[in-house]
Simulated scan of single mutants.
Amino acid sequence: MQEVRGVVARGKGAPVEVTSVLVPDPGPGEAVVSVRACGVCHTDLHYREGGISDDFPFLLGHEAAGVVESVGSGVTDVAPGDFVVLNWRAVCGACRACLRGRPWYCFNTHNAAQAMTLADGTPLTPALGIGAFADKTLVHAGQCTKVDPAARPAVAGLLGCGVMAGIGAAVNTGHVGRGDSVAVIGCGGVGDGAVAGARLAGAARIIAVDTDPRKLEWARGLGATHTVNAGETDPVEAIRELTGGFGADVVIDAVGRPETYRQAFYARDLAGTVVLVGVPTPEMTLELPLLDVFGRGGALTSSWYGDCLPSRDFPLLIDLYLQGRLDLDAFVSEQIPLDDVEAAFGRMHAGDVLRSVVIL
């Protein structure tokens, strides 16, 4: 058992606090990871606001990279000293999705069996089974993906959630190909990841849509060929105009609201693809004319975590970063200490940053 510092949300809407966290020694199949960096993601704010569950207190943080400190019995894929990116979909290898060769849909992903606790023994719920706003965290060993240690922890950790979700939405789910036209609605961390993914895939035209001029500039820096300010013009008409009147081959909704989904639906070409990667809230509903769904053809699909397979995708993307072909550095707006997480939530909510990254 070790005592470390961690960022804890004790109640709905209450400011987070840095407090003592007890981390057990790893049991069978588990690993203790010394966290080097962890991105501040909207999902952590959703946890604090009670939007994920009411299993308070939460140990926040999940978009992380670090070094394996110790492992429990039966662990063979990682060892102490390995530089790893943490993931929240450690595939089981035995469920119906895994057995059908689709492990990115795994229905039985692994987390650590033991609980980290507050100093008084109160069990903590780790965000997405990770809890990495802490000096050290306990995870299932399958949540550790070994990558090249030459990568900066501040950028490597971003693959643990938002950037991977965006890149995967374009590459894995949307199957963007060379010469395709792509529109991305919403240019935060996930949307800009989709822009970067479309660029990697060789899209000829990448149209970034947002209402914030700052976010549109970030998207252009990551590979958008055109930008549309949806606060000033109809994005559906603008996307059609930029694609010869037809609409984009792939439209990615990185916002996850009924109005943005409708825009994505009508901004795609006939037989085009809509990818929903922005996460809706439970009360949201959508109504579309069924004849339009039938008549426009194509595919309407959702992207869970960018349909990624961490063991395949994380090392590949880190290699592309080290080759200078994927500018992960552009996603890091600021590096902050652990004590600045609450203030970083405010900057993120205001749209002042693409990603704040906690350095430990």
Rank of each mutant, 00 (worst) to 15 (best):
M1A: 08
Q2M: 12
E3D: 07
V8M: 04
P15I: 12
P15G: 01
V16H: 00
S20C: 00
V21Q: 07
S34E: 11
R36N: 00
C38E: 08
H42C: 07
H46D: 13
Y47R: 00
R48Q: 15
E49R: 15
D55S: 10
A64V: 03
V67R: 01
E69K: 15
V71H: 09
G72H: 04
V75A: 05
D77E: 11
A79W: 09
G81C: 10
D82V: 05
V84S: 03
V85L: 09
V85R: 01
V85A: 11
A90H: 05
A94N: 07
R102G: 08
F107C: 13
A113P: 00
Q114I: 02
A127S: 07
A132G: 04
T137C: 13
T145A: 11
K146D: 01
P149A: 06
P149Q: 01
P149K: 04
P153V: 08
M164Q: 15
M164K: 09
A165C: 11
A170S: 13
V171D: 02
T173E: 02
H175F: 00
V176G: 01
G177E: 10
G177S: 15
R178I: 14
G179S: 09
A183C: 08
G191Q: 07
R199M: 14
L200D: 07
A208N: 10
K215A: 02
E217L: 00
G221M: 08
T225S: 15
N229R: 13
A230G: 09
T243D: 06
G245Q: 12
A248E: 11
I252F: 11
D253Q: 07
Y261M: 14
Q263R: 12
Y266L: 06
A271K: 14
A271N: 15
G272K: 01
T273V: 11
V274W: 03
V275P: 06
V275S: 06
V277L: 13
E283L: 04
T285L: 10
V293R: 02
F294M: 14
G306P: 10
P310Q: 02
S311H: 12
R312M: 03
L317E: 06
L317W: 15
Y321P: 04
L322A: 02
L326M: 10
P337L: 05
P337H: 00
L338W: 08
D339K: 00
D340N: 06
A350W: 08
L360F: 15
